[in-house]
């Protein structure tokens, strides 16, 4: 019965995505989704292999009040929106990081506990701020869940610039990323550009989190950063396989979202989540067969 339904579904003459592809808003949404997945796929090995998966989540929450503040600031003084958002996010991201380190050191608590306390507090500030205003593009729902369908071609261009910067920063320093990722102290002694890579990592993560927030939302962006490397198992911090997995996952999720009228971000994360569980099940089965 299930297979018959699947067969009927696949033999349909047109998918919703294909039918709507000529529409400008579909093209914008698809381009944005693919660019965000490209960025996340590029950064995913560093985030997962350096055990910083929680950083994506933390940053997405830390920058929230900065994004809200920057939005109102840009409106009030007629400043460019994206530049204001980046500055606002960078300021709160920096303050949040300092606070995380301060709490960790002074209270002698684990880094994840310090991060959770700080990120929820910062997020609460943002929620309070945004609850006072409604009917703007930056509302709580957009921040939490994102919406690629509200983006415009200028947003696609901005995402393209961030994606290009991320690509260059990773590809040009590939061996430095790998050496730092493997053994930072040895890498420093051997002359790899460890300091540069260590400084670039939070900058790139902030850029990608911020860019992705408007597409898939702050609740989903950390999943998009973590899932591709978990699926691909990269052997380098610059992994084409991980990028391909990330973009394929995004494309399938996007098509499903159009087909069944699901939120795009959730559909992509759902596809990724199911694939991760399937990968674990396959590996588990192989291990049992061997033993």
């Amino acid at each position: 019965m299930t297979f018959t339904a699947l067969g009927e579904f696949l033999s349909r003459p047109h998918f919703a995505l294909w039918e709507n592809l000529s529409l400008s808003f579909t093209q914008v949404a698809l381009s944005s989704t693919l660019l965000v997945s490209l960025m996340c796929g590029l950064l995913s090995p560093a985030v997962v292999l350096k055990q910083r998966a929680y950083v994506g989540d933390t940053l997405a929450h830390l920058v929230f009040p900065g994004v809200i503040g920057a939005y109102f600031f840009a409106q009030a003084f007629d400043l460019p929106l994206w530049a204001s958002l980046v500055v606002g996010a960078a300021i709160t991201g920096f303050i949040g990081n300092v606070l995380v380190n301060f709490l960790e050191r002074r209270l002698r608590i684990p880094p994840d506990a310090a991060a959770v306390v700080t990120l929820t507090s910062f997020f609460a500030v943002g929620v309070v701020a945004v609850s006072k205003v409604s009917g703007t593009r930056v509302d709580l729902h957009t921040i939490l869940f994102g919406d690629v369908l509200t983006l415009e071609w200028t947003d696609v261009a901005t995402l393209g610039v961030v994606a290009l910067f991320t690509l260059i920063a990773l590809a040009a320093l590939r061996h430095d990323w790998d050496a730092w990722g493997s053994d930072p102290e040895f890498a420093a002694i051997s002359g790899f550009r460890v300091t540069l890579v260590e400084r670039l990592f939070p900058v790139l993560t902030t850029f990608v989190v911020l860019a992705g927030m408007f597409a898939v939302g702050s609740l989903m962006i950390s999943a998009l950063l973590a899932i591709p490397a978990v699926l691909a198992g990269p052997r380098s911090f610059v992994s084409l396989r991980t990028v391909a997995v990330s973009m394929a996952m995004a494309l399938v999720g996007f098509a499903l979202a159009f087909e069944f009228d699901w939120p795009v971000g959730s559909a992509i994360v759902l596809v990724g989540g199911v694939l991760v569980v399937m990968k674990a099940a396959v590996l588990n089965r192989r291990t049992h067969k061997r033993s």
Partner: peptide, 8 residues
């Protein structure tokens, strides 16, 4: 000290 998640 070598990152045990990075399979080089």
């Amino acid at each position: 000290k070598v990152n045990h998640f990075f399979h080089v």
